[in-house]
Design a protein around this nucleic acid. Structure first.
Lengths: 118, 118
DNA sequence: GTCGTAGTTTGACATCTCTCGTAGTACGAG
DNA sequence: CTCGTACTACGAGAGATGTCAAACTACGAC
């Protein structure tokens, strides 16, 4: 938590206890969002929205990041004009032990099979 | 595989290699379907559609079972007038090792937290 | 203050999803 | 062949979803 977050622009996140498995699965069932989560996990760092090269417009990108945040998969913080995104690995690991890793492994295996960027 | 399946009423299933992670996650992101899969995993047996006491009509039940079958989560076979449903555990474990177990464990934990039938 | 960059908001549109009710098909029992 | 059971098919309707374009806000740099 480097304290560089921009004050006065808080974003609503579900508490850990409010995160629902169904919502997480729904969030990850979209290829675009699964890709985002995969990149976020690969580089173990927070990334701004614009660092993802997604084949959709900015409004659609905003939409996907919001779904991920509202389902509890990622945490978003404003840092100046950028919006940084980080996986909520700690919360997810407590709620659903091993799930995130299995999910990422599965996504990696499938990407390899399909000849994508695995 | 007791050979009691009714011939001439085959149902289309995706091959193992055709099963997509996104489709599986989408199938499991519905509470009704997640419940079905949980029951199917708990009793390690094939169950007919009508053995599930779901709070929806028969047509809706048919719909949910079809989504599960077409996503590759379950296998369906006619046995007389009944349609038996079984988890495709073997295929899923090969494709996405550990995923199904993490998913079931996560669903169990959440059901316990929520005071449902966990 | 002005400008540019980053992201949001709104409205629209096509598609999909979950649900239902009604009518229909497939099988086994008699 | 008739009947009952188990499930399907076919609409239909309410609502969610993914996408876009255009106009907007927030921040930093100058």
């Amino acid at each position: 938590m480097t304290d560089t977050a921009t004050p006065g622009r808080a974003l609503p996140h579900p508490e850990r206890e409010q995160i629902r498995l169904e919502s997480v699965l729904h969030a990850l069932s979209d290829p675009m969002r699964l890709q985002i989560v995969r990149e976020l996990a690969a580089r173990e760092a927070e990334l701004s929205c614009s660092q993802f090269e997604l084949p959709v417009t900015k409004s659609t990108t905003t939409h996907h990041f919001r779904v991920l945040r509202e389902s509890g998969v990622i945490r978003q913080v404003y840092r100046g004009t950028a919006k940084m995104n980080g996986l909520r690995r700690d919360d997810l690991d407590v709620l659903f032990p091993g799930l995130l890793d299995s999910l990422l492994a599965a996504a990696g295996l499938q990407a390899g099979r399909l000849g994508a960027d695995g």
